[in-house]
Design a protein around this nucleic acid. Structure first.
Length: 808
RNA sequence: GCUUGGGUGGCGGAAUGGUAUACGCGAAGGUCUCAAAAACCUUUGGGCGCAAGCCCGUGGGAGUUCGACUCUCCCCCCAAGCACCA
């Protein structure tokens, strides 16, 4: 018997498919469209690894399934090729990033093709192609013209290793998301995108999406909406007042001091009233230089001597502090401190011996302690700091009022204003690095900031010898005089180009739109084509992008929708996340650990079909799993057995009843589980089928159906066997098999007989028997008899076609 | 600390109120072979027992139910995300 020569077979069919363009997505097709998307890769020097494959294979299996179901499927690919690694490589080797990128893309493309991931290569995009980033720049200009891009000076996150500013989203636990360096604070002039203007829309839009709840919740928390009030505190003996944001105006009578963030400008106004100015200045300087992470270690502060504020509720004078635990970027950068009802204020007040005044009495539970949400437990009631709601005390005429009501009433009483506050901060959009899209603006002495006229786009990256980031806060582009100095398109006078570049998230914020119309020279994409393909039906990708790419691209999309440039309010309808693949040692794969698995080697050893199937068989798609080299043997054996099974003389076998039932059950299971992205159980269903039919003769039709079910997973093997059966079509163009309800039912089933809930016997009986009959059969069984042991039967539970339970 | 998932054989995992451990890996024994590999067959949660069989068993404890991996409450542990957001 011939051995399954996967290497030869796979190469053969890959050529055949390429000839026939089987993955080509037809514009204006009569079929219903499906747009399946994976996060396009970054073409690194190491090539694609085993982890990239997971979503690609999932998307590929799903796409193949949908094509067989009769849809016009677009499953495109491109390259997210701007970014630090290419630039760092260039610095090290002296090779221009565009060159190394080109080589890397070539390699990755060969890899992907060797796995037969069915991408439509005719739609390939590359974010570093001027024909592409021309439109990235164009979209930026639209944002600028709409007032959503602005320049500001301020403290931003700064990565000392990459020597560039970072967005809030790129700081993960105080470290640079890219390189892991400890992020610092630095005062810099930066470009921002006003993503905060879209906070509400981003929140609202989530409700319409078919995304896993956990992703929605993560985005929701990141946007962090909270409702409260803004209240002014007068400063005694001045015309000044300090505005605070609070979600707890009901505790206003308990505000015994105020705190300003170290960056708060207010202190400058009262400089000459503050008697301890020197001390204060030193403190502010020290605190500002520290990152938020460092600041959070210990609460410290300095009192503004000689300045007192007035609590607007009870007119009492209260001290004002500058302290590190108040953030300048949130609310007004100033708070009213209520130590009796806020843990942070409580901690600070204890340390600095400040007055703690209780104004909320926890409402004691009508229900038993701990039985419902928001009901204080005994412990909480006794504690010094109660942060829940309750009944007001020590609050004059509001005494006895409920917290919720008091929030409204006290806000009104002191002339405060209801206010909605978001945690989301504006997107720091400029980078001081070379390998990114130049921001298409100019600075003119006479006209100020002037956008580059649209017809002059793209503003291409100049060729340079030195890519090194300067570290000064200036991009390396700033050193190229010939590029920087230009003419103002408005007044014709001398102007300088903006030298900052865009972050890597720019190109990826709209790439899925370009796929719909990748070669358009006149617009970023034609609206009719966008209407045809959008929205993305299923987007496969990693959890790590929840508050980065996924948030950014939704923002851009919503903006483009408001500009009537895209046809849908949201870009991606369904999101299917995947877990990361760990090394065999259960650790994250990394070069330094030496646990990286090379997919090319696996393909050589076991073939692409085996690699594809094993990726899916590892475990549930969303779960984190460890790679186990030995596990792939199981898949390899399965494919080998399939091959051998189909080598048996192709006589017209006849299916018995059991095989028919098994077949239809398998069709049902495979179809349903693919629809739910439960690929691991699909594969086990295919194995169960083979286990059930091996060594028996099958009808040709049954064999063909099985091959079709296998086709999305092992496209090469199934195509080979399909043609061996004498078919001249491609199996992947065949219609997906349907199951028939009437074949799902067997004649007999195993009736489980329980006594007091314990299984005591299993009887084979015919399907559909009534309770009485089942009872008679069960009671006739010797074992059942012995367990009932002549006791009185109190109750009988009968579940049709499943079990009968006697309670004695 | 908060939010969201999880905890099932030696291992990856299956089962969302009805036979726990499907499917695969590994292991043990066997067939084939001079031998080995591959392949194939059998066994494989634990305890007691010669056996038939019985008892126990899904992180721990309670509860609901004829019946709980599945539902409810409390606790422990692991993972991911957020973290002074007033």
């Amino acid at each position: 018997m011939k051995k399954y020569d996967f290497s030869k077979i796979e190469k053969y069919w890959q050529k055949e498919w390429e000839k026939e363009q089987v993955y080509f997505a037809q514009d204006k097709s009569k079929k219903e469209k499906k747009y399946i998307l994976i996060e396009f890769p970054y073409p690194s020097g190491e090539g694609l690894h085993i982890g990239h494959l997971r979503p690609y294979v999932a998307g590929d299996v799903y796409s193949r399934f949908l094509r067989m179901k009769g849809y016009e499927v677009m499953y495109p690919i491109g390259w997210d090729a701007f970014g630090l690694p290419a630039e760092n490589f260039a610095i090290k080797k002296g090779v221009h990033p565009s060159l190394s990128t080109k080589g890397n893309i070539k390699n990755a493309e060969a890899q992907i093709k060797s796995w037969s991931i069915g991408f439509d290569w005719s739609r390939e995009v590359n974010t570093t192609d001027p024909e592409y980033y021309k439109w990235t720049q164009w979209i930026f200009l639209q944002l600028y013209k709409a007032g959503l891009a602005y320049e500001a000076e301020g403290f931003i996150n700064w990565c000392p290793r990459d020597k560039t500013g970072l967005a809030n989203e790129e700081v993960v636990g105080g470290f640079c998301e890219r390189c892991g360096a400890n992020v610092e604070k630095k005062e810099l002039r930066q470009w921002y995108l006003k993503i905060t203007d879209y906070a509400e829309k981003l929140l609202e839009g989530l409700k319409t999406l078919d995304w896993p709840e956990k992703i929605k919740i993560q985005q929701e928390n990141w946007i962090g909406k909270s409702e409260g009030a803004e209240i002014d505190f007068e400063v005694k003996g001045t015309e000044e007042s300090i505005k605070v944001f609070t979600t707890r105006p009901d505790t206003l009578f308990g505000a015994t001091y105020m705190v300003l963030a170290p960056e708060h400008e207010f202190v400058l106004k009262l400089k000459n009233k503050i008697s301890n100015w020197k001390e204060l200045e030193a403190y502010i300087k020290k605190a500002s230089a520290k990152s938020e992470e460092e600041r959070s270690l210990e609460k410290t502060g300095v009192k503004l001597e000689g300045v007192n504020a007035i609590n607007p509720a009870n007119k009492e004078e209260i001290p004002v502090f500058i302290a590190n635990y108040v953030l300048s970027g949130y609310g007004t950068g100033a708070i009213m401190a209520v130590p009796a009802h806020d843990e942070r204020d409580f901690e600070f007040a204890q340390k600095y011996n400040l007055e703690i005044k209780k104004v909320i009495l926890p409402i004691l539970a009508k229900n038993p302690v701990g039985s419902a949400q928001g009901v204080p437990s005994e412990v909480a009631v006794q504690s010094e700091c109660w942060i829940g709601n309750g009944q007001l005390i020590n609050s004059d005429k509001f005494d006895g009022m409920d917290s919720e009501k008091a929030k409204q009433e006290i806000t009104k009483f002191v002339g405060g204003k209801k206010k909605i506050q978001y945690r989301l901060r504006d997107w720091v959009f400029s980078r001081q690095r070379y390998w990114g899209e130049p921001i298409p603006l100019m600075h003119c002495k006479a006209c100020g900031i002037v956008p580059v006229p649209e017809e002059e786009l793209p503003v291409t990256l100049p060729e340079v010898k030195k890519y090194e980031p300067t570290g000064t806060g200036e991009s390396p582009l700033a050193a190229i005089d010939s590029w920087v100095n230009t003419k103002c398109p408005k007044c014709g006078g001398p102007a300088k180009r903006e030298t900052n570049t865009m972050p890597q998230w720019a190109g990826s914020s709209w790439y899925y739109l370009r796929y719909a119309d990748p070669n358009n020279k006149k617009e970023f994409a034609n609206i009719d084509l966008l209407k045809q393909w959008l929205p993305v039906d299923v987007y496969f990708g990693g959890m790590e992008h929840t508050t980065l790419h996924l948030l950014y691209s939704r923002f851009w999309h919503q903006f483009l929708y408001d500009q009537k440039l895209v046809p849908t309010p949201e870009p991606y309808i369904k999101r299917v996340p995947h877990g990361i693949i760990l090394g065999a040692d259960g650790e994250k794969m990394s070069k330094s650990r030496g646990n990286v698995v090379c997919p090319d080697e696996i393909v050589r050893k076991f073939g692409a079909d085996a690699l594809r199937m094993y990726e899916l068989f590892l475990g549930p798609h969303e779960a984190m799993v460890s790679w186990n080299e030995k596990g792939i043997l199981g898949i390899s054996r399965f494919l080998e057995r399939v091959y051998k099974f189909f080598q048996i003389e192709n006589s017209e076998g006849k299916d018995d009843e059991n095989i028919k039932v098994l077949l239809h059950k398998t069709i049902k299971k495979v179809t349903e589980d693919i629809n739910e992205f439960k690929f691991n159980t699909v594969i086990s269903a295919l194995m169960i089928f083979l286990n059930g039919v091996e060594g028996r003769e099958l009808k040709r039709e049954t064999k063909q159906i099985f091959l079709k079910l296998l086709a999305p997973f092992a496209p090469h093997l199934s195509e080979e066997l399909w043609s061996k059966l004498g078919n001249t079509t491609f199996i992947q163009k065949e219609p997906w098999p349907e199951y028939n309800e009437k074949f799902l039912k067997e004649d007999n089933y195993e009736l489980v007989v329980q006594v007091n809930g314990k299984v005591r016997a299993i009887l084979v009986v015919s399907v559909g028997i009534k309770e009485q009959e089942a009872q008679k059969l069960a009671l006739a069984d010797e074992k059942v008899k012995s367990f009932i042991n002549n006791q009185k039967i109190k109750k009988v539970i009968f579940v049709p076609d499943r079990l009968i339970n006697f309670v004695v």
